[in-house]
Simulated scan of single mutants.
Amino acid sequence: MKIILNVKLFKANLQVKEAIPVYHKAYDVPYALLGQLGQQLEELQNSGKIIPIKHCAWVSPIVLVPKKQGSLRMCVDFKVAQNKVLNVDYYPLLKREDLVASLAGRKIFFCVKLGRKSIPYVTMNNQGLFQWTRLP
């Protein structure tokens, strides 16, 4: 069976409870890793997945997680602020094994764009402030 998804027309919109915004300072990053972080941020900027900004009320810190092969995975610690105020729709998810099996052999992955009003809630902090234009 062939399934075609047109995600270009879809934009994710985060539903947020009324709350006082939280600006969380950046976590410390070892000096030896600052170059790799800067390179990842530059690549994300050049691809249009993040945009630099001057200020925002909702800000979460970047967390660097080492991968087995020595590179770094850049994550954002949204649990310090945004996760607490999101209205989440709960529905049953596939088991991890079923999801992995359904993706076997796939080489194309896509990022879902965010609606304009949702972008301030996905701001990250390190080497400046950056907002995601897609779901991180």
Rank of each mutant, 00 (worst) to 15 (best):
A19Y: 00
I3F: 10
H55Y: 15
L64F: 04
K17W: 12
E18A: 14
A12L: 15
Y31F: 13
L37D: 01
R96C: 00
G38M: 10
H55W: 14
K95I: 10
I62P: 04
N13S: 13
I53P: 07
V85I: 15
K2H: 06
V7W: 08
Q127W: 04
K107A: 06
R116T: 11
D77Q: 06
R106G: 11
K107L: 07
M124G: 02
I62M: 12
V59L: 04
L41Q: 01
S47E: 13
K11T: 10
R116I: 13
V63Y: 01
S102V: 09
P120R: 04
M1Y: 14
G38S: 06
V29L: 07
F10C: 09
G128V: 09
E18K: 14
M74T: 01
A26K: 05
L114Q: 00
P52K: 13
I53A: 06
Y91V: 10
V65M: 08
L86H: 00
A32N: 12
R96Y: 09
N126Y: 12
Q36S: 08
Q15E: 11
I4Q: 10
K68I: 11
A26P: 00
N125T: 08
V112H: 04
A32W: 13
K2I: 13
H55N: 14
A101N: 12
L129W: 01
A32F: 12
H55A: 11
D77K: 05
L34D: 03
P92D: 03
V80Y: 11
I3D: 02
C111V: 10
K54G: 00
E18S: 15
I53K: 04
F10K: 14
G48C: 06
V88H: 05
L135N: 06
T133P: 03
R106I: 10
D28W: 05
A32R: 14
V88A: 04
V85F: 03
Q82P: 03
E42I: 09
V59W: 04
F130D: 03
V122N: 08
L86E: 01
I50N: 07
H55G: 08
V80N: 09
K25F: 10
N87I: 13
P92E: 11
V112F: 01
Q69Y: 13
K49H: 14
P52T: 05
L135Q: 04
K67S: 01
L14C: 11
Y91K: 15
P30T: 07
K67H: 03
L72E: 04
C111S: 15
A32K: 15
N125L: 08
Y31R: 14
A19L: 03
L34S: 02
K117P: 09
L129K: 02
I62Y: 05
I4M: 08
L103R: 04
A57Q: 14
A101C: 07
R134G: 04
E42D: 04
G115D: 15
Q45H: 05
C75I: 05
K54L: 13
Q15W: 12
G128C: 05
P136T: 01
K49F: 10
T123L: 03
R134Q: 08
P92K: 13
N126H: 15
